[in-house]
């Protein structure tokens, strides 16, 4: 049986795991590392619920093999709040009621966080297209878009 010994940094921690060839990064995060905050919505890259940041880029963890990530840096939802403080995006999602069932929320937060790093002052339309790979069936997106725009404004204000 083909097994692979992998070393990676996950949320700043050095981790080592063994995975089979068929296991995706999502399988590894959830099944081997027990980081279940990253969600499995489709397994085919169509819903974005498993969005994590791999070597600085947001990706679908279901479309990456565990075997590929040796030497990589991975950031998941579990690392988003720092030192007991919510990230501004997390706080704004609560303030704006931008989640209902919450299953899409970790993926959307990671996507939005990565996106705002490349575009700190987006328009509504830009946010909508940036989040087009993250399905939400509950909210109709309205409050999610408002929360991201508001968080972006707050993050810009705290930069200056």
């Amino acid at each position: 049986m083909a097994r692979h010994l992998i070393n990676a940094m996950v949320n700043g921690d050095r981790v080592e795991f063994v995975c089979g060839t068929g296991q995706t990064l999502l399988d590894v995060l959830r099944g081997e590392l027990h980081l279940t905050g990253t969600k499995n919505g489709c397994g085919t890259g169509d819903c974005g619920a498993c969005t994590v940041v791999l070597n600085g880029r947001p990706i679908n963890a279901c479309l990456v093999l565990g075997a590929e990530v040796d030497g990589s840096e991975i950031e998941t939802i579990e690392g988003m709040a720092q030192g007991g403080e919510l990230h501004p995006l997390q706080q704004k999602f609560l303030d704006h009621a931008a989640l209902q069932c919450g299953i899409c929320t970790p993926g959307i937060l990671k996507m939005a966080q990565a996106y705002l790093e490349t575009n700190p002052d987006p328009t509504e339309t830009e946010v909508r297209f940036a989040l087009a790979g993250n399905l939400c069936r509950c909210t109709g997106y309205d409050k999610i878009v408002r929360a991201v725009l508001d968080a972006a404004a707050e993050m810009r204000a705290s930069e200056t």
């Binding site: 947001p58 679908n60 479309l63």
Partner: peptide
């Protein structure tokens, strides 16, 4: 091709 996440791959 695909979403921003897919674009990364």
């Amino acid at each position: 091709i695909g979403s921003a996440q897919v674009q990364g791959r």
